[in-house]
């Protein structure tokens, strides 16, 4: 009892500090945006100082808009979007995109693996600049993040063993269905009408999708609901005797999340992505990872 009570206090303290952080950063945001406003009013007053004032305002704006180092927060176990190679270098679709963006915007690039459960705290305490890791755009995200539009389509699909008798979504009735905890796959499964008829009336939850797929192979579950991008990559890369059903659970899209209030960085990154698409760089990255030019669509 005491433990719960105390950790409750700790959590409360954490929450308070996190909230005060939001408040504090929002106020600095507004004060910095008021600066260029006042300098522009000066501009109107004296036309002779126009040049120097313009210089001053551009100097004042630039450092507040873009950080020197762009820290991309990710769960580095999400191939092919962001993961580690054999030497623990972080690679992936999102990493290549972000690197190109940083080059364009003149920022240092850094990929920072984070605990996925702590991603909001990482973002709110400015330890990362964004969450960019095959993040499914979900309802309510606009209230906690500054989201970009979608840059990739994704589907929540059902993976079963090659030899399984499951052919359609309806066949999931009375079967053990698994998903990664806190994932959009789980969310899609829970929203689906089939959910109430699966075995136990609830999904079996796993820490990550590899564990779920391993249990699928062992036979502890009959189907796994997960991202199509990852599922296809996993089955192909590891030559698993698994297949993806034609029936989809849900269609969704990937976006990039920035700290609430930081629209400048979000808009700069999105703008750079649009330019990269026009230059053909995005198609190049798509081809490299998916053997298809049109997997990534900016806007």
């Amino acid at each position: 009892m005491n433990k719960k009570w105390l950790s409750g206090i700790l959590i409360a303290a954490l929450a308070v500090s996190a909230f005060s952080a939001c408040g504090g950063s929002a106020s600095t945001e507004s004060s910095s945006s008021s600066e260029p406003a006042s300098s522009s009013s000066q501009q109107e007053e004296s036309a002779s100082q126009e040049e120097s004032a313009a210089e001053a305002s551009s100097q004042a704006e630039e450092p507040s808009a873009l950080p020197e180092t762009f820290v991309l927060g990710l769960d580095a176990s999400f191939p092919p979007m962001g993961f580690m190679d054999q030497n623990n270098n972080i690679i992936g679709v999102d990493i290549d995109l972000a690197k190109a963006v940083c080059e364009k915007l003149g920022m240092e690039f850094e990929a920072k693996p984070i605990d996925w459960d702590a991603k909001e705290m990482e973002l709110n305490s400015d330890k990362i600049s964004c969450i960019w890791n095959g993040l499914t755009i979900q309802e309510g995200f606009d209230e906690i993040y500054e989201m970009t539009p979608a840059y990739m389509d994704n589907e929540q699909v059902i993976v079963v063993m090659e030899s399984s008798d499951i052919q359609s979504k309806e066949d999931l009735a009375d079967k053990i269905v698994a998903a990664q905890k806190d994932s959009s796959g789980l969310a899609a499964l829970q929203k689906d009408e089939i959910y109430s008829s699966i075995q136990g009336g609830a999904a079996k939850e796993y820490g990550n999708y590899v564990e779920a797929l391993t249990d699928l192979e062992i036979g502890r579950c009959d189907a796994v609901v997960m991202d199509s991008i990852v599922a296809n990559y996993y089955i192909n890369a590891n030559a698993k005797a698994m297949r993806v059903l034609d029936d989809k659970m849900a269609s969704e899209q990937y976006g990039i999340a920035f700290k609430k209030g930081n629209t400048e960085l979000r808009d700069a990154v999105w703008g750079a992505l649009q330019e990269l698409e026009a230059e053909g760089k995005v198609a190049e990255i798509s081809l490299q990872w998916f053997n298809k030019e049109d997997m990534i669509q900016i806007g």
Binding site: S77, F78, F83, Q86, N88, K112, A118, N208, Y234
Partner: peptide
């Protein structure tokens, strides 16, 4: 320590698991 974003053995293991698809 991974909860505060420090890499250690277990985290690299997780990354390797998701890369190789083997536990």
């Amino acid at each position: 320590v991974f909860s505060i974003s420090i890499m250690e053995v277990l985290y690299y293991a997780k990354a390797a698991v998701s890369r190789t698809g083997s536990i």
